[in-house]
Design a protein around this nucleic acid. Structure first.
Lengths: 181, 181
DNA sequence: AGGCTTTGTGCAACTAGTTGCACAATCGGT
DNA sequence: ACCGATTGTGCAACTAGTTGCACAAAGCCT
């Protein structure tokens, strides 16, 4: 039940069309709540039907026929309610850890290459986050909104840091392991 | 497509009935791949139908009528294949980070209490993992299987450590924030 | 003017996970 | 011998997310 709220947040930050939302999910909100364009269009339809957002009638019938949406007061209220409501953390699910555990029983053959690949991906993501931090949060900005957004980015950075470290450590262990299987 | 493989791993570690699996998921595998008993029974049925596991005919028709399963060679082969196959990391989804981002737009009212609650939950989980580490991985054990399992546990410990630190940091920021909304 | 790619919107079918319930067998107490 | 709690197995319906496809409009190339 979080996608609609992710969309409301994005629309409050800036009214957008479906495609614009999709792009913004790809490069910002999507870092911790990903969604495909199909999901987004479907959800926009629902939110409009529920009266939480509405299509901006503006500047039609121009190019491509793109529809922009804005959040209605009811939508903002719902988002505030949801933000404040207690929610239990979701049970974890991590495929890579599962595979490692499986490797303890069936052997590590073939796994190492994929660990290296993951390490590379996490390094790249970390570098990207660091870029964003440098660009969007130079020292000295401390409006409450910036602080909160920076906090979220920090979580991303620290998580990626954790993964790169852990994967490095895992690969070092692999190097010492006899070739099981 | 990971639940069947989680079950295969658990069954290779030790043949079990549905309920036993459920319990083990609750306290071990479930730390990174949770599943309800309903899911598990359904999946056991499928795995049996596909010929990857089979019911142990043994010691029937005893108590409760519980059925134990063991992994067949085809099942072990499938698990090995899956473990070695490259898999992209799943797009992240974290509700708490999403809520923080929403709070940047609609105000932080009510959120702080839930952050505290989460901090407490993560602390508890961390303590539990540390207990397990002390109990199951005393210094000096280094059979390959132990090393791999220890590695997985380390990931759990480090992740929980990250969350407790990040939440602590977030709460400190909140303390300095003017009461938005 | 013709076709080719990009932009933009969307439906339909499928898969995985969740929630709610049912119901039989056994065990422990009275 | 009965009764409630626990153990153990499972179905059905629902929800959220994924995958695959369709198709129209605009812009670009030749």
């Amino acid at each position: 039940m979080s996608l609609p709220h992710a969309i409301l947040t994005a629309l409050l930050e800036k009214p957008s069309s479906g495609l614009e939302l999709t792009r913004r999910f790809d490069k910002s909100i999507g870092y911790f709540w990903s969604a495909t364009h199909q999901q987004i269009y479907r959800e926009l339809g629902r939110l409009e039907a529920e009266g939480l957002i509405r299509a901006l009638p503006a500047e039609q019938p121009a190019r491509g026929q793109k529809k922009s949406y804005e959040v209605l007061p009811a939508g903002r209220a719902e988002l505030a309610r949801w933000t404040a409501a207690a929610q239990d953390p979701k049970p974890q699910r991590d495929v890579l850890l599962l595979r490692l555990r499986a490797a303890a029983v069936v052997g590590t053959a073939g796994l190492e290459a994929d660990l290296r690949r993951h390490l590379e991906l996490h390094r790249r993501q970390l570098a990207e986050y660091r870029e964003i931090e440098k660009r969007d949060f130079p020292p000295g900005r401390d409006a409450p909104q910036d602080r909160l957004r920076h906090l979220v980015l920090r979580a991303g950075i620290d998580l990626e840091t954790f993964w790169t470290q852990w994967l490095t450590h895992a690969l070092a262990e692999f190097a010492e392991l006899p070739d099981t299987d």
